[in-house]
Design a protein around this nucleic acid. Structure first.
Lengths: 228, 228
DNA sequence: AGATAATATGTAGGAGTCCTAACTAGTCAA
DNA sequence: TTGACTAGTTAGGACTCCTACATATTATCT
């Protein structure tokens, strides 16, 4: 094949890591720029977003440890960030009725408003993603999901609420190439482009069963990749 | 098609941003963990890597501003990081013969050693990438390159030394689907899986000409995507 | 019941990150 | 030579992120 470049280049996984790292640099920088406008630092904004995503009627209030795990920071750092959010009047700590040690985190009215902006990504990133063709966006989402799951399995990040590790996920249950999967929770078919990264309804499969479902998803042929 | 999820879900670019952000969290955390072992903070390690990548015999010594631009931080922050590296004996500042204001940055012997480790990514990330099939790795690299170029065009990140913006790049110059492109510098064919993100030989095309080359690359059909 | 271990969180201290603003010194062009 | 840039540094402040260590509460084991 192409002996020259195959031996000359860095291994592909290494370049992938470098590429993702570059994107990560751009993301961080964008978050700092947004931070100023909103009076929130990147970590604070992320913490706010996690709290918002995990709050809801009839759902237990998220805890500090949960924030720390999701952001892959220590509890001490998370405590700092939450204290600052509290000082800014966006978050309230409430004693947890079921565990006197724990502090349940809830958004204030202001916090709810701020959290909506906090989910805003730098426009440049959204525009760049939107410039990809729909098929490319779908392929990228699928690949990103695979990377996230891989990191999760290796313990590098906290469990994300992914479709592909959910009790209600049925990979390749339908013939329709544009929506081959099935969500048994809403009982509807869907495709790779609908895969979620943080679904509130997600109910994680135990490890024993997760492997088989994952394999079916990961190896399943998808006919919609031809136009890349 | 799948009306339910199409209207129910966050827009795809938004979820892509969220997904990349999660990967970015994992990356940062991994860098902090590595940092400890090496006595270098993430920024210092990145700065060291940039200096190493841009140093070389017969090449002008990289400047501080270049580091700042590549890492998307201010010159002040870069100055801090480089000062620390200097204090640790890994980097030397040398007066630039052609510009008395500028300080050329060079690695010490120790710095050269340290820079090799600094290019090491968290093993978990490399392993996860390596778990993807070769076709998937190639597809992801291509998509990451597209994202980087998009962010670069929008001014969100400093110019990367990409094949796709290089004077010597000839997209789809060959029939061979596994190596359709051609590098006129080494005069050899190569494929998407060989795309580089920081090639020392890269010579950027002027904007006027870059658009046409890019379009040919971006829209070119690739036959190797069927097994995703 | 009482002692012990484990858990959830908070505090303190220190190095590092990252910014803006102000400053020095060198370059370049009119 | 003067004025406008440009490269880099410094100072100050908010925030990030860590490792200890301290505190309260819950779980567990005799």
């Amino acid at each position: 094949m192409t002996a020259v470049f195959d031996t000359l280049s860095d291994p592909l996984p290494r370049r992938l890591a470098a590429g993702l790292s570059r994107l990560s640099v751009a993301l961080r920088a964008g978050q700092w720029r947004l931070a100023e406008a909103r009076g929130l630092s990147p970590t604070q904004a992320q913490a706010l977003a996690v709290i918002a995503a995990r709050s809801g009627p009839g759902r237990p209030a998220p805890r500090l440890s949960e924030i720390a795990a999701q952001l892959a920071i220590t509890r001490a750092t998370a405590s700092d960030a939450v204290s600052t959010l509290e000082r800014k009047g966006l978050v309230m700590r409430q004693p947890d009725p079921r565990d006197g040690r724990a502090a349940g985190l809830a958004l204030t009215e202001e916090g709810r408003t701020a959290a909506q902006d906090a989910g805003d990504w730098p426009a440049m990133l959204l525009d760049t993603a939107a410039d990809l063709s729909p098929a490319e966006q779908e392929a990228l989402l699928r690949l990103v999901v695979k990377m996230i799951r891989g990191l999760q399995v290796r313990g590098a990040i906290a469990p994300a609420r992914l479709c592909v590790t959910c009790r209600y996920f049925r990979p390749y249950a339908h013939e329709d190439a544009s929506a081959p999967h099935h969500c048994a929770y809403v009982d509807a078919p869907f495709g790779d482009r609908h895969l979620r990264l943080d679904c509130p309804e997600q109910d994680p499969l135990p490890d024993a069963e997760a492997g088989a479902v994952w394999t079916r998803f990961a190896t399943g042929a998808s006919g919609a990749m031809s136009t890349l």
